[in-house]
């Protein structure tokens, strides 16, 4: 199965949540909810056709919004999930550091200025 190209298949999906809400948004205006730049690569969801800029986003979307994944898709989902968790951990450390800086920064500012 070609999972790298922009393959848009017919959508016999059970897309709820993320995918569904995005396509619902277009119903009033009748426009496409997605805008892919002409020279960009898109990773389309094989079930609902939603285009993603990164493979990881597509894999996570498959796992979160569609049931009955095949083995390849499930493995890709697990990998993506792992990478996502790692990145989240990194983000948490940075954000904790920022909070500490903010807190002590303001403590100092109040000591000096007030």
């Amino acid at each position: 199965m070609n999972r790298d190209g922009p393959d848009v298949l017919d959508g016999d999906d059970d897309s709820r949540r993320a995918g569904a809400s995005a396509s619902n948004d277009a119903r009033d205006t009748g426009t496409d909810p997605y805008e892919v730049p002409p020279d960009a690569t898109a990773f389309a969801c094989p079930r609902c056709g939603r285009p993603f800029a990164r493979e990881r986003h597509r894999d996570l979307h498959l796992g979160a919004d569609h049931r009955d994944l095949d083995d390849d898709e499930r493995a890709a989902y697990e990998d993506a999930r792992e990478a996502e968790t790692d990145d989240l951990r990194r983000f948490r450390i940075v954000s904790l550091g920022t909070l500490v800086l903010l807190y002590f920064g303001f403590l100092l500012l109040y000591a000096v200025a007030a």
Binding site: A22, T29, P33, Y34, E35, A40, P51, A53, H57
Partner: peptide, 11 residues
């Protein structure tokens, strides 16, 4: 890094 249209995000 998303292909959602700007209008959808604004809404």
């Amino acid at each position: 890094d998303t292909y959602l249209a700007p209008g959808v995000l604004a809404r």
